[in-house]
Design a protein around this nucleic acid. Structure first.
Lengths: 194, 194
DNA sequence: GGAGTTATGGACCGATCGGTCAAGTTAGGA
DNA sequence: TCCTAACTTGACCGATCGGTCCATAACTCC
């Protein structure tokens, strides 16, 4: 081994992730990334490969981060309806920040690259699958405990809720307020709770 | 007046719209547009202005087209629950074409340009407002006729349904099948019908 | 204290970007 | 008929794109 890196790889990746989240893939240039990450051109390419690889790593980090923070309680083995409600509440808050720079890297990735970048598409689908599964389990658990009506099909409702999450990212980007989103979440969730 | 155009403006716009829908704003170059539209460079700029103006006109056309075709029955003065169901069914079909080139120009516009292009954002919001209003009226009418439970708040459910539409564009882009989307629509709509 | 390895900074690459210029062509109106 | 306004064509513009090369610096190991 020789000369150590002068920058923090994880931190640089966070900066890239944030820029991609706000501006999208095509909308962000390597020059902007380099500047935002605070590293030199060559260090960028040596460490992260080309732009697509950097985006993919940012996306991976983004989804992992989401699972570890906001979604963590939902992924807990005993997660139920309260955890689900709390998760949706956190998503609403995340999508409507004070500075107005809402926007979801995952949604951007699906729209912008989902059709022609297999690895990105794969990452997005994997994330959707695991999240949906966590939602389904939480719903089922809540149903067993009598918090959700018996006739509800948790499997298909989990897809409805995934769509709800995606839908909110666009509603938020299109001007919906935190209060509006919060209310729409409550309306939907109350609909199948008993 | 002098020499007439050799190409059909509306048709050229359709081509541009289709390309933007599939590839997004940043993902589509003027060279590609020129080729797809089948016109010369200068004709393009003379007729449509710069890229942003061309995109805006494409977006306008896209939303207008949607209102005139799929959404037309929903906008009818006597639209009710059947029209609403039918509209969602048509959207599902639109989002899951045989060739796999699903994708919604409106969703792309919101994600890619909603944050930093006021005119595009304005167009997206106007479209959302009018569509949501049509949904709300149809819901209300269905409620008066006893097809929807009395305790339902049509105003806020209309936002839930707008979110559902947006959500489906991402679900479709992320691999959801026509059958899955259809089922999720049924699940949601059945939830507040009596 | 070399020797070998990795990181850094900046110049540089061809390609492509959105957009324009100018010369030539085709029509309508006087 | 001929003038002129509008359309077409293709070369061309500077800027920026993603990506690479190379000389130099900084570190570890022998």
């Amino acid at each position: 081994m020789a000369r150590p890196k002068e920058f923090d790889v994880e931190e640089a990746l966070d900066r890239a992730m944030e820029l991609f989240r706000r501006q999208g893939f095509e909308g962000t240039s390597m020059n902007e990334l380099q500047e935002a990450m605070g590293i030199g051109r060559q260090s960028l390419y040596d460490t992260f490969g080309d732009k697509k690889q950097l985006f993919l790593r940012s996306l991976d980090r983004y989804t992992a981060r989401g699972r570890e923070t906001m979604a963590a309680p939902l992924f807990a083995p005993d997660a139920s309806l309260p955890e689900l409600r709390r998760y949706f509440e956190e998503i609403v808050e995340f999508l409507t920040p004070r500075d107005g720079n809402g926007g979801c890297l995952l949604a951007g990735a699906i729209v912008e690259l989902g059709a022609d970048h297999p690895e990105v598409a794969s990452c997005c689908r994997t994330n959707q699958r695991s999240l949906r599964e966590a939602i389904r389990k939480a719903l089922k658990r809540a149903q067993v405990d009598g918090m959700i009506r018996k006739e509800i099909d948790c499997e298909s409702i989990s897809l409805v809720l995934m769509g709800k999450l995606y839908g909110m990212t666009l509603l938020a980007r299109n001007g919906a307020s935190r209060a509006q989103l919060r209310k729409s979440v409550k309306q939907l969730l109350d609909m199948f709770t008993s």
